[in-house]
Design a binder for these strands. Structure first.
Lengths: 175, 175
DNA sequence: AGAAAATATATGACTTGTCACGTAAAAACT
DNA sequence: AGTTTTTACGTGACAAGTCATATATTTTCT
């Protein structure tokens, strides 16, 4: 018979609090919560759009027809995500896709009236969401927040080797 | 023959810039970049740990044995994520799991020497990463950043109905 | 004590995202 | 002109999350 292990509730609580200041470990939860809330807003609107579909229709409405790569670039996502989502959207009648005559590698994506209607149905609810966020953050705070995200994103692009090498070389140890 | 649609490169660029200030649309990319960089650090360290495994071992090292629910709470993730990851970790010899004798519903998870060794191998590299972040953000900025995440997370927990209802009722329209 | 409600975990089904690799077309370079 | 390199897209394989639902135990309430 193995004796029972005991849990130290204080330690567990302390760990939870300490992790609050760890940006890396907070991102997954914040992003997951954002995605979940986004999906609930879309459900509420009733158009049956997924997150990716909503983002894509919005991009197409705002910036007009463009290539798959353009959409991926705007969303800062891998092209394969769109490459998979778009045929489904075409099947639903939201977009049209045609091979570019200027560059036969490219596929030009364009919203249809039906896609526009789906966008129009979801847009007011999604606009409410952004407006509600502006009740909680001032214009300036949003800019600061976005600035932090910019800087973090830049940091996240630095290759591992460089970050570890710098440290090992003792570069900027005190900075 | 359908005439070719034209792409307005300026509009596409403008859209990309405008989205820079949309917190909601930036989170996926920032989180994905963080996850990718995290995985590269773990690969670099060589212990063969996944992100979830790393986080879990770290929690167990820092806070001692605890239930699946405790781990999920610390990571602010759904318990099912851990419920799936842990049996695999046990198979690898990183953790032990035993049913609590005090409450037969609970499973108490505990790190093994092998799990500790895997943690020790990854930890210095992961510590480098956090140290490198502190080269880019001051102590105070990290606190501000975490504060923004707190407030955003709180916002994201507000149910849709409430947010939309408030807006429709014209509550705080100017705030 | 017995019934009802809450809690801990497991599991199936799904979405969002990545990377690696293949293919076709275009661009750049001899 | 022909070869090499780059670019755009498709696709298979995987990771990290979510939700909904089922089951076994506890807890709470009458």
């Amino acid at each position: 018979m193995t004796e029972q292990v005991t849990i130290d509730a204080d330690q567990v609580r302390a760990r939870m609090e300490r992790e609050g200041l760890n940006i890396f470990s907070r991102l997954p939860a914040v992003y997951a919560a954002s995605r979940t809330q986004g999906r609930k807003f879309l459900d509420f609107a009733g158009g049956g759009l997924s997150i990716v579909e909503w983002r894509t229709l919005w991009d197409l409405v705002e910036a007009g027809p463009m290539t798959i790569r353009d959409i991926a670039a705007i969303q800062r996502a891998d092209h394969s995500l769109l490459s998979r989502a778009l045929p489904e959207m075409r099947k639903k009648g939201f977009v049209e896709m045609q091979r570019s005559s200027r560059d036969a590698r490219q596929t030009i994506v364009q919203i249809t009236p039906k896609g526009r209607a789906a966008f129009d149905q979801a847009a007011p609810v999604m606009a409410h969401r952004r407006a509600a966020l502006r009740d909680v953050f001032t214009e300036e705070e949003i800019r600061d927040f976005a600035g932090f995200l910019d800087r973090l994103e830049q940091f996240l692009r630095i290759p591992v080797e460089q970050l570890v090498a710098d440290k090992i070389a003792g570069k900027d140890p005190a900075k």
